[in-house]
Design a binder for these strands. Structure first.
Lengths: 239, 239
DNA sequence: CGTTAAGCGGTTATCGATAATCGTTGACGA
DNA sequence: TCGTCAACGATTATCGATAACCGCTTAACG
C-alpha cells in the first residue's frame, strides 16, 4: 500500500471529514476494528487517529469501551464565547504591532466572506471567518496564545455555529462586523483594538444566545446541537 | 502482569515522573522500544503514552524520527502569563457567584503554601499554588474555560517556574499574594475580583521577567530553561 | 419470580513480529 | 580532498493474533 504520509494521519483526516459531513453523528460509536476493516488497514493506525481526535475534542473515549463522536451541546457553544472574547482581546492588543503584515489578508478574507454570505455558502463563510480571526491571532506573535486559541477548535465550531446562524437568521452579515476591527488595527491603538475584538466576539456570542433562547424557552439545559444538513465535501483552499 | 488501570496510563505517569524529576532532560530522546523493554511491556502502550504526552505538550514527536522531551524556553515561559492573566481574570469574575463553595479550600491552600514556602519545599509549594488557582477556575463554572486553562499545563510549568524563582529569589512569598484574591471573592464584586486575579498573574509574570533579565542581558533569545536540581519524588496528596 | 453467576459476542488493550524509514558510515570515483 | 551513494544499524510505523474486558443474555438457584 503506497502512502505519502503516515497512515494514522490519513485515517484522521478521513474520519474528520466524515464527522464534519455528518456521516458520523454525535454519539455514534467509532469501532476501531470496523474502521480498520473498511479502510483495509490494521487496527493500530485507526486507534492512533482516534486518540489524536480525542485531543482535538472531536471524539471521546472511555477505557475498554471505545470511542464515540463527541456531542456538542448548547452550553458548550455558549461557554466558548467569553473565553474567545478574552483571548481575542489580548490578540487584538498585541496584533497592533504587526498590523501591517496582515491588513491585506484581512481585507481579502472580509471580501470573500461577503461573497460567501451572499451565496449563502456556509462552509466558505466559515472558512474565511476563521481565517480572519486566525490571522489576528497569529499577528499577536504570542505562540502560547495562538496554541491556546487553536485548542478551542474554532474551525469546527464556527462551521457548526454558522450553519445554525444562517439557517435561522439568514439576514445577519458577519463580514460587516469585521470592518471596525480592520479600522482599529490601522489606527494603531492597542487598547481600542483589543476592545473592538472583544466586542465583536461577544456580540456574536449574544446572537447565538438569542438563537438558543427563542428556539426553546422550555428546555433550558444541554440541548444537543445537531448538524443535519446535507453538506458538500470541503477541501481545497480557494486561492 | 496484574494491572489496575490501562498500561499506557501507567507508562504515562511513570514517564511524566521521570521528566519532572529530571531523569529525562529536555531534548532527550524517548525511544519506544527501549522504554518498552525497560518496563517489560510491548511497544504499543509506550507509543500511546508518548502520543498522550504530546497532547500534554511535554513531548514532541517527528514522524519516523521519534519522541523527545520538549524544551521549554524563556519565551514560552514568559508568553504564558498574558494568556493566564486574561483567562484568570475571566475566571475571577465568574467565580464570585460560587465563592462560598471554595473559600475554605482557598484558605487551606494558602496556609499550606506558606508552610511549604517556609520549608523551601518547591514541589509542595507548586502543588498548593496550582490548587489555589484551579479552585477558582473550577468555581467559574465555565467548562470550556477550565479545559482551556488546563491545556496550559499549569502544574508542570508552575513547578519548573517556582523552582527557578525560589532558587533565585528565595525571599518572595507567593502565598501572601493570594490574600487579596480571597478578600475580593468574599467582597463579591466580580469586576474587582477579576482585576485582582489578573494583577496577581501579571505580577508573577513580571517577577519571572525580571529573573530572566538580570540573569543574562546578553543572550536575549530562547535560552532554554533547565531543571537541574535533584528532586524528591512527588506523589500523594497531603491531606 | 427476583437474584446471581456463567457464558457469549463484540470490542478494546496488548503483544510480538515485520516492513518502512532515517541517519550515518565508509567505500568509491572525480 | 571532497561529494555521492549503497549498505547498515537503529528506530518507528504497521500488521495480525491474542488476551482482557464490558454489557447482555440466560440458566441455575433461592
Amino acid at each position: 500500500m503506497i502512502q505519502r504520509v503516515v497512515l494514522s494521519e490519513q485515517v484522521k483526516e478521513e474520519l474528520l471529514d466524515d464527522i464534519m459531513a455528518g456521516r458520523y453523528k454525535p454519539g455514534d460509536r467509532l469501532v476501531e476494528s470496523q474502521i480498520a476493516k473498511r479502510m483495509g488497514i490494521s487496527q493500530s493506525p485507526v486507534r492512533e487517529a482516534l486518540r489524536d481526535m480525542v485531543a482535538m475534542r472531536f471524539v471521546e473515549v472511555e477505557p475498554h469501551k471505545g470511542a464515540r463522536v463527541r456531542q456538542i451541546d448548547q452550553r458548550e457553544v455558549l461557554e466558548i464565547y467569553p473565553v474567545r472574547a478574552c483571548l481575542e482581546e489580548l490578540a487584538g492588543q498585541l496584533a497592533v504591532a504587526h498590523a501591517g503584515d496582515i491588513l491585506d489578508d484581512l481585507q481579502k478574507s472580509t471580501e470573500r466572506m461577503t461573497a460567501a454570505f451572499e451565496a449563502q455558502d456556509v462552509r466558505t463563510l466559515a472558512h474565511w471567518d476563521v481565517r480572519f480571526h486566525r490571522a489576528i491571532l497569529e499577528a499577536s506573535g504570542n505562540q502560547i496564545l495562538i496554541e491556546t486559541w487553536n485548542s478551542l477548535m474554532i474551525e469546527a465550531r464556527t462551521f457548526v455555529t454558522l450553519n445554525n446562524l444562517i439557517s435561522r437568521k439568514p439576514h445577519i452579515n458577519l463580514a460587516g462586523r469585521h470592518m471596525p476591527i480592520i479600522e482599529a488595527l490601522q489606527e494603531g491603538d492597542p487598547i481600542r483594538c483589543g476592545r473592538v475584538m472583544r466586542e465583536h466576539v461577544e456580540e456574536f456570542g449574544d446572537v447565538m444566545h438569542g438563537i438558543f433562547e427563542d428556539g426553546d424557552e422550555s428546555t433550558t439545559d444541554l440541548k444537543p446541537f445537531e448538524l443535519d444538513m446535507a453538506l458538500p465535501p470541503l477541501k481545497a483552499e480557494a486561492g
